[in-house]
Nucleic acid binder design. Structure first.
Lengths: 167, 167
DNA sequence: TTGACATAGTTAGCTGCCTAACTATAATGC
DNA sequence: GCATTATAGTTAGGCAGCTAACTATGTCAA
Protein backbone atom coordinates (compact mmCIF):
# COMPACT_ATOMS: atom_id res chain seq x y z
CA UNK A 1 0.00 0.00 0.00
CA UNK A 2 1.38 3.36 -1.02
CA UNK A 3 1.96 6.08 1.46
CA UNK A 4 0.54 9.21 -0.17
CA UNK A 5 2.28 11.89 1.89
CA UNK A 6 0.53 14.77 0.19
CA UNK A 7 -3.22 14.61 0.73
CA UNK A 8 -5.21 17.02 -1.43
CA UNK A 9 -5.98 20.43 0.05
CA UNK A 10 -9.57 21.70 -0.07
CA UNK A 11 -8.53 23.91 -2.98
CA UNK A 12 -7.22 20.98 -4.98
CA UNK A 13 -10.34 18.95 -4.20
CA UNK A 14 -12.48 21.86 -5.36
CA UNK A 15 -10.48 22.10 -8.58
CA UNK A 16 -10.92 18.40 -9.30
CA UNK A 17 -14.61 18.51 -8.36
CA UNK A 18 -15.00 21.33 -10.86
CA UNK A 19 -13.62 19.20 -13.69
CA UNK A 20 -15.25 15.95 -12.53
CA UNK A 21 -18.84 16.48 -11.36
CA UNK A 22 -19.12 13.08 -9.67
CA UNK A 23 -16.45 14.00 -7.12
CA UNK A 24 -17.79 13.85 -3.58
CA UNK A 25 -15.20 15.81 -1.66
CA UNK A 26 -15.96 14.60 1.87
CA UNK A 27 -16.05 11.00 0.60
CA UNK A 28 -12.69 11.47 -1.11
CA UNK A 29 -10.94 13.12 1.81
CA UNK A 30 -12.28 10.53 4.26
CA UNK A 31 -11.20 7.69 2.00
CA UNK A 32 -7.70 9.07 1.45
CA UNK A 33 -7.16 9.94 5.10
CA UNK A 34 -8.24 6.43 6.04
CA UNK A 35 -5.73 4.89 3.62
CA UNK A 36 -3.04 7.24 4.85
CA UNK A 37 -3.53 6.53 8.56
CA UNK A 38 -3.77 2.79 7.98
CA UNK A 39 -0.57 2.78 5.93
CA UNK A 40 1.25 4.69 8.65
CA UNK A 41 -0.09 2.26 11.26
CA UNK A 42 1.14 -0.68 9.21
CA UNK A 43 4.58 0.88 8.77
CA UNK A 44 4.76 1.63 12.50
CA UNK A 45 3.88 -1.99 13.20
CA UNK A 46 6.67 -3.10 10.86
CA UNK A 47 9.11 -0.89 12.76
CA UNK A 48 7.97 -2.30 16.09
CA UNK A 49 8.28 -5.89 14.86
CA UNK A 50 11.64 -5.35 13.18
CA UNK A 51 13.12 -4.65 16.63
CA UNK A 52 12.34 -8.31 17.31
CA UNK A 53 13.66 -9.56 13.95
CA UNK A 54 10.16 -10.15 12.62
CA UNK A 55 8.03 -8.90 9.76
CA UNK A 56 4.24 -8.85 9.66
CA UNK A 57 3.88 -12.01 7.60
CA UNK A 58 5.92 -14.27 9.83
CA UNK A 59 4.56 -12.68 13.00
CA UNK A 60 0.98 -13.34 11.95
CA UNK A 61 1.81 -16.98 11.25
CA UNK A 62 3.13 -17.37 14.79
CA UNK A 63 -0.02 -15.74 16.19
CA UNK A 64 -2.30 -17.92 14.08
CA UNK A 65 -0.53 -21.00 15.41
CA UNK A 66 -0.74 -19.79 19.00
CA UNK A 67 -4.50 -19.31 18.58
CA UNK A 68 -4.88 -23.06 18.11
CA UNK A 69 -5.26 -25.30 21.15
CA UNK A 70 -2.68 -27.65 19.60
CA UNK A 71 -0.42 -24.76 18.37
CA UNK A 72 -0.61 -26.62 15.06
CA UNK A 73 -2.09 -25.98 11.61
CA UNK A 74 -1.36 -26.61 7.93
CA UNK A 75 0.16 -24.36 5.26
CA UNK A 76 -3.12 -24.20 3.31
CA UNK A 77 -5.17 -23.14 6.30
CA UNK A 78 -2.59 -20.61 7.40
CA UNK A 79 -2.43 -19.18 3.88
CA UNK A 80 -6.18 -18.77 3.75
CA UNK A 81 -6.37 -17.12 7.17
CA UNK A 82 -3.55 -14.73 6.30
CA UNK A 83 -4.94 -13.92 2.87
CA UNK A 84 -1.80 -14.99 0.97
CA UNK A 85 -1.24 -17.72 -1.60
CA UNK A 86 0.05 -21.12 -0.60
CA UNK A 87 3.23 -20.32 -2.52
CA UNK A 88 3.81 -17.30 -0.31
CA UNK A 89 3.12 -19.39 2.78
CA UNK A 90 5.80 -21.87 1.72
CA UNK A 91 8.30 -19.01 1.80
CA UNK A 92 7.10 -17.67 5.16
CA UNK A 93 7.34 -21.13 6.70
CA UNK A 94 10.79 -21.71 5.21
CA UNK A 95 12.00 -18.61 7.03
CA UNK A 96 10.30 -19.48 10.29
CA UNK A 97 11.61 -23.04 10.17
CA UNK A 98 15.16 -21.80 9.56
CA UNK A 99 14.85 -19.73 12.72
CA UNK A 100 13.43 -22.79 14.53
CA UNK A 101 10.23 -20.93 15.39
CA UNK A 102 8.04 -23.58 13.73
CA UNK A 103 8.56 -27.17 12.62
CA UNK A 104 7.16 -29.16 9.70
CA UNK A 105 5.77 -32.51 10.80
CA UNK A 106 4.68 -34.91 8.06
CA UNK A 107 1.11 -36.09 8.56
CA UNK A 108 0.32 -39.78 8.61
CA UNK A 109 -3.37 -39.58 7.74
CA UNK A 110 -2.96 -37.51 4.55
CA UNK A 111 0.49 -37.84 3.04
CA UNK A 112 -0.01 -34.74 0.87
CA UNK A 113 -0.33 -32.59 3.95
CA UNK A 114 2.16 -31.19 6.43
CA UNK A 115 1.47 -30.13 10.00
CA UNK A 116 3.04 -26.85 11.06
CA UNK A 117 3.72 -26.62 14.76
CA UNK A 118 4.82 -23.67 16.88
CA UNK A 119 8.03 -24.61 18.70
CA UNK A 120 8.84 -23.61 22.25
CA UNK A 121 11.29 -21.10 20.77
CA UNK A 122 8.39 -19.72 18.69
CA UNK A 123 6.22 -19.41 21.77
CA UNK A 124 9.10 -17.77 23.63
CA UNK A 125 9.48 -15.28 20.79
CA UNK A 126 5.80 -14.39 21.03
CA UNK A 127 6.10 -14.04 24.79
CA UNK A 128 8.63 -11.28 24.17
CA UNK A 129 6.99 -9.61 21.18
CA UNK A 130 3.35 -9.60 22.21
CA UNK A 131 3.71 -7.70 25.51
CA UNK A 132 5.76 -5.06 23.71
CA UNK A 133 3.23 -4.83 20.86
CA UNK A 134 0.24 -4.71 23.20
CA UNK A 135 1.82 -2.04 25.37
CA UNK A 136 2.56 0.17 22.36
CA UNK A 137 -0.85 -0.40 20.81
CA UNK A 138 -2.58 0.50 24.06
CA UNK A 139 -0.71 3.80 24.10
CA UNK A 140 -1.46 4.42 20.45
CA UNK A 141 -5.22 4.07 20.99
CA UNK A 142 -5.21 5.81 24.37
CA UNK A 143 -6.92 8.96 23.06
CA UNK A 144 -10.04 6.97 22.09
CA UNK A 145 -12.41 6.19 24.94
CA UNK A 146 -14.77 3.22 24.75
CA UNK A 147 -17.51 5.28 23.13
CA UNK A 148 -15.19 6.48 20.37
CA UNK A 149 -13.92 2.94 19.81
CA UNK A 150 -17.49 1.77 19.32
CA UNK A 151 -18.06 4.64 16.88
CA UNK A 152 -14.93 3.56 15.00
CA UNK A 153 -16.14 -0.03 14.74
CA UNK A 154 -19.49 1.18 13.44
CA UNK A 155 -17.98 3.52 10.84
CA UNK A 156 -15.55 0.84 9.65
CA UNK A 157 -18.47 -1.55 9.33
CA UNK A 158 -20.34 0.92 7.13
CA UNK A 159 -17.32 1.49 4.92
CA UNK A 160 -16.66 -2.22 4.75
CA UNK A 161 -20.17 -2.82 3.45
CA UNK A 162 -19.54 -0.24 0.72
CA UNK A 163 -16.34 -1.83 -0.58
CA UNK A 164 -18.07 -4.05 -3.18
CA UNK A 165 -19.37 -0.86 -4.83
CA UNK A 166 -15.78 0.24 -5.40
CA UNK A 167 -14.75 -2.87 -7.29
CA UNK B 1 0.05 -4.54 3.64
CA UNK B 2 -1.18 -7.98 4.56
CA UNK B 3 -4.80 -8.90 4.38
CA UNK B 4 -5.51 -10.75 7.62
CA UNK B 5 -8.71 -12.58 6.71
CA UNK B 6 -9.22 -14.08 10.12
CA UNK B 7 -9.67 -11.37 12.75
CA UNK B 8 -9.52 -12.67 16.33
CA UNK B 9 -12.82 -13.66 17.94
CA UNK B 10 -13.64 -12.27 21.40
CA UNK B 11 -12.68 -15.68 22.81
CA UNK B 12 -9.24 -15.56 21.21
CA UNK B 13 -8.73 -11.99 22.37
CA UNK B 14 -9.69 -13.04 25.90
CA UNK B 15 -7.25 -15.93 25.75
CA UNK B 16 -4.41 -13.65 24.65
CA UNK B 17 -5.38 -11.00 27.22
CA UNK B 18 -5.15 -13.69 29.85
CA UNK B 19 -1.57 -14.53 28.94
CA UNK B 20 -0.52 -10.93 28.21
CA UNK B 21 -1.92 -8.49 30.79
CA UNK B 22 -1.14 -5.38 28.72
CA UNK B 23 -3.60 -6.44 26.02
CA UNK B 24 -6.35 -3.86 25.55
CA UNK B 25 -8.98 -5.82 23.66
CA UNK B 26 -11.02 -2.93 22.25
CA UNK B 27 -7.81 -1.20 21.13
CA UNK B 28 -6.62 -4.38 19.43
CA UNK B 29 -9.87 -5.14 17.66
CA UNK B 30 -10.24 -1.53 16.49
CA UNK B 31 -6.68 -1.48 15.22
CA UNK B 32 -6.98 -4.78 13.36
CA UNK B 33 -10.35 -3.94 11.84
CA UNK B 34 -8.95 -0.63 10.66
CA UNK B 35 -6.01 -2.36 8.96
CA UNK B 36 -8.32 -4.92 7.44
CA UNK B 37 -10.82 -2.44 5.99
CA UNK B 38 -8.06 -0.20 4.66
CA UNK B 39 -6.33 -3.15 2.99
CA UNK B 40 -9.58 -4.18 1.34
CA UNK B 41 -10.17 -0.60 0.20
CA UNK B 42 -6.71 -0.49 -1.31
CA UNK B 43 -7.20 -3.80 -3.11
CA UNK B 44 -10.57 -2.62 -4.42
CA UNK B 45 -8.90 0.54 -5.69
CA UNK B 46 -6.29 -1.61 -7.46
CA UNK B 47 -9.05 -3.61 -9.10
CA UNK B 48 -10.83 -0.44 -10.24
CA UNK B 49 -7.61 1.05 -11.65
CA UNK B 50 -6.52 -2.16 -13.35
CA UNK B 51 -9.58 -1.88 -15.58
CA UNK B 52 -7.88 1.21 -16.96
CA UNK B 53 -4.42 -0.40 -17.23
CA UNK B 54 -3.15 1.51 -14.20
CA UNK B 55 -1.73 0.69 -10.79
CA UNK B 56 -1.85 2.96 -7.76
CA UNK B 57 1.71 4.20 -8.10
CA UNK B 58 1.43 5.42 -11.69
CA UNK B 59 -2.07 6.74 -11.17
CA UNK B 60 -0.98 8.88 -8.21
CA UNK B 61 1.86 10.32 -10.27
CA UNK B 62 -0.62 11.43 -12.94
CA UNK B 63 -2.83 13.01 -10.29
CA UNK B 64 0.08 14.79 -8.62
CA UNK B 65 1.02 16.26 -12.00
CA UNK B 66 -2.54 17.33 -12.73
CA UNK B 67 -2.66 19.14 -9.39
CA UNK B 68 0.03 21.52 -10.63
CA UNK B 69 -0.96 24.60 -12.62
CA UNK B 70 1.83 23.75 -15.10
CA UNK B 71 1.07 19.97 -15.03
CA UNK B 72 4.82 19.70 -14.39
CA UNK B 73 7.04 18.57 -11.53
CA UNK B 74 10.35 16.77 -10.90
CA UNK B 75 11.09 13.16 -9.97
CA UNK B 76 12.39 14.15 -6.51
CA UNK B 77 9.32 16.17 -5.62
CA UNK B 78 6.98 13.49 -6.94
CA UNK B 79 8.84 10.83 -4.97
CA UNK B 80 8.56 12.83 -1.78
CA UNK B 81 4.84 13.53 -2.25
CA UNK B 82 4.14 9.88 -3.02
CA UNK B 83 6.27 8.59 -0.14
CA UNK B 84 8.51 6.42 -2.34
CA UNK B 85 12.25 6.56 -2.99
CA UNK B 86 13.66 8.37 -6.00
CA UNK B 87 14.76 4.99 -7.34
CA UNK B 88 11.15 3.79 -7.30
CA UNK B 89 10.03 7.02 -8.97
CA UNK B 90 12.50 6.42 -11.80
CA UNK B 91 10.74 3.12 -12.49
CA UNK B 92 7.26 4.60 -12.28
CA UNK B 93 8.22 7.39 -14.70
CA UNK B 94 9.86 4.90 -17.09
CA UNK B 95 6.56 3.08 -17.33
CA UNK B 96 4.49 6.22 -17.73
CA UNK B 97 6.84 7.59 -20.36
CA UNK B 98 6.69 4.34 -22.34
CA UNK B 99 2.91 4.73 -22.42
CA UNK B 100 3.35 8.39 -23.44
CA UNK B 101 1.41 9.58 -20.41
CA UNK B 102 4.27 11.82 -19.23
CA UNK B 103 7.41 13.25 -20.86
CA UNK B 104 10.85 13.99 -19.47
CA UNK B 105 12.05 17.48 -20.38
CA UNK B 106 15.64 18.36 -19.50
CA UNK B 107 15.85 21.51 -17.44
CA UNK B 108 18.08 24.39 -18.54
CA UNK B 109 18.51 26.08 -15.15
CA UNK B 110 19.73 23.00 -13.24
CA UNK B 111 21.27 20.41 -15.49
CA UNK B 112 20.99 17.73 -12.79
CA UNK B 113 17.23 18.01 -12.83
CA UNK B 114 14.49 16.78 -15.15
CA UNK B 115 11.02 18.22 -15.57
CA UNK B 116 8.21 15.70 -15.74
CA UNK B 117 5.21 16.86 -17.67
CA UNK B 118 1.75 15.35 -18.03
CA UNK B 119 1.03 14.82 -21.73
CA UNK B 120 -2.35 15.36 -23.34
CA UNK B 121 -2.65 11.57 -23.49
CA UNK B 122 -1.99 11.51 -19.75
CA UNK B 123 -4.69 14.10 -19.14
CA UNK B 124 -7.05 12.17 -21.40
CA UNK B 125 -6.36 9.02 -19.38
CA UNK B 126 -7.24 10.84 -16.17
CA UNK B 127 -10.40 12.21 -17.79
CA UNK B 128 -11.52 8.62 -18.24
CA UNK B 129 -10.29 7.17 -14.95
CA UNK B 130 -11.24 9.90 -12.50
CA UNK B 131 -14.99 10.03 -13.25
CA UNK B 132 -15.14 6.25 -12.88
CA UNK B 133 -13.15 6.32 -9.63
CA UNK B 134 -15.17 9.20 -8.18
CA UNK B 135 -18.46 7.55 -9.07
CA UNK B 136 -17.46 4.31 -7.39
CA UNK B 137 -16.02 6.04 -4.35
CA UNK B 138 -19.19 8.07 -3.88
CA UNK B 139 -21.19 4.85 -3.83
CA UNK B 140 -18.74 3.21 -1.45
CA UNK B 141 -19.10 6.01 1.10
CA UNK B 142 -22.83 6.50 0.53
CA UNK B 143 -23.80 4.96 3.88
CA UNK B 144 -21.94 7.68 5.79
CA UNK B 145 -23.78 10.98 6.14
CA UNK B 146 -21.86 14.21 6.66
CA UNK B 147 -21.95 13.85 10.44
CA UNK B 148 -20.46 10.37 10.30
CA UNK B 149 -17.79 11.55 7.87
CA UNK B 150 -16.81 14.27 10.34
CA UNK B 151 -16.69 11.66 13.11
CA UNK B 152 -14.45 9.53 10.93
CA UNK B 153 -12.06 12.41 10.29
CA UNK B 154 -11.91 13.11 14.01
CA UNK B 155 -11.27 9.50 14.98
CA UNK B 156 -8.59 9.12 12.31
CA UNK B 157 -6.96 12.28 13.61
CA UNK B 158 -6.83 10.86 17.13
CA UNK B 159 -5.35 7.58 15.93
CA UNK B 160 -2.89 9.43 13.74
CA UNK B 161 -1.62 11.38 16.75
CA UNK B 162 -1.05 8.10 18.56
CA UNK B 163 1.07 6.50 15.85
CA UNK B 164 4.42 7.76 17.21
CA UNK B 165 3.69 5.79 20.40
CA UNK B 166 3.58 2.60 18.32
CA UNK B 167 7.04 3.04 16.81
C1' DT C 1 39.88 28.70 -6.71
C1' DT C 2 39.31 24.61 -5.45
C1' DG C 3 38.27 20.75 -2.25
C1' DA C 4 34.50 19.03 0.37
C1' DC C 5 29.96 18.30 0.59
C1' DA C 6 25.05 18.25 -1.13
C1' DT C 7 21.62 17.16 -4.52
C1' DA C 8 19.20 14.95 -8.89
C1' DG C 9 18.64 11.03 -11.18
C1' DT C 10 19.81 6.31 -12.43
C1' DT C 11 21.39 1.52 -12.02
C1' DA C 12 22.09 -2.99 -9.75
C1' DG C 13 20.68 -6.21 -6.84
C1' DC C 14 17.57 -7.65 -2.76
C1' DT C 15 12.90 -8.85 -0.79
C1' DG C 16 8.18 -10.34 -0.43
C1' DC C 17 4.44 -10.71 -2.74
C1' DC C 18 2.23 -12.77 -6.95
C1' DT C 19 0.76 -16.42 -10.91
C1' DA C 20 1.48 -20.59 -13.34
C1' DA C 21 3.17 -24.95 -13.65
C1' DC C 22 4.66 -28.99 -11.47
C1' DT C 23 4.72 -33.52 -8.24
C1' DA C 24 2.49 -36.38 -5.16
C1' DT C 25 -1.50 -38.04 -3.01
C1' DA C 26 -6.51 -38.57 -2.30
C1' DA C 27 -11.34 -38.81 -3.77
C1' DT C 28 -14.82 -39.76 -7.14
C1' DG C 29 -17.52 -41.85 -10.78
C1' DC C 30 -18.01 -44.93 -14.75
C1' DG D 1 -10.55 -51.05 -10.85
C1' DC D 2 -9.06 -47.43 -13.03
C1' DA D 3 -9.30 -42.87 -15.33
C1' DT D 4 -10.49 -38.36 -14.04
C1' DT D 5 -10.56 -34.74 -11.10
C1' DA D 6 -9.39 -32.33 -6.81
C1' DT D 7 -6.19 -31.04 -3.24
C1' DA D 8 -1.49 -30.09 -0.65
C1' DG D 9 2.68 -28.35 -1.13
C1' DT D 10 6.63 -26.69 -3.81
C1' DT D 11 9.30 -24.49 -7.48
C1' DA D 12 10.28 -21.05 -11.11
C1' DG D 13 9.92 -16.75 -12.72
C1' DG D 14 7.70 -11.91 -12.70
C1' DC D 15 6.79 -7.40 -10.55
C1' DA D 16 6.94 -3.38 -7.52
C1' DG D 17 8.84 -1.78 -3.79
C1' DC D 18 13.44 -1.16 -1.25
C1' DT D 19 18.77 0.11 -0.17
C1' DA D 20 23.27 1.17 -1.65
C1' DA D 21 26.33 2.75 -4.86
C1' DC D 22 27.21 5.45 -8.78
C1' DT D 23 27.51 9.74 -12.22
C1' DA D 24 26.82 14.37 -13.00
C1' DT D 25 26.05 18.80 -11.45
C1' DG D 26 25.67 22.51 -8.10
C1' DT D 27 27.04 25.00 -3.66
C1' DC D 28 29.93 26.75 -0.25
C1' DA D 29 33.72 27.92 2.58
C1' DA D 30 38.79 27.90 3.50
Amino acid sequence: MLQLRDLPTPEILAKFADRYPDADVTAISGFLYMLRVATDLSLALDTCLSKHDLLQGRWWVLILLMREESVTSTPSILAEKLGVTRATMTGLLDGLEQNSLVTRVFAKEDRRSVKIQLTSAGQAKLDVVMPDYYRRLKQCMQALDEEKRMQLQQLLGLINKGIPALI
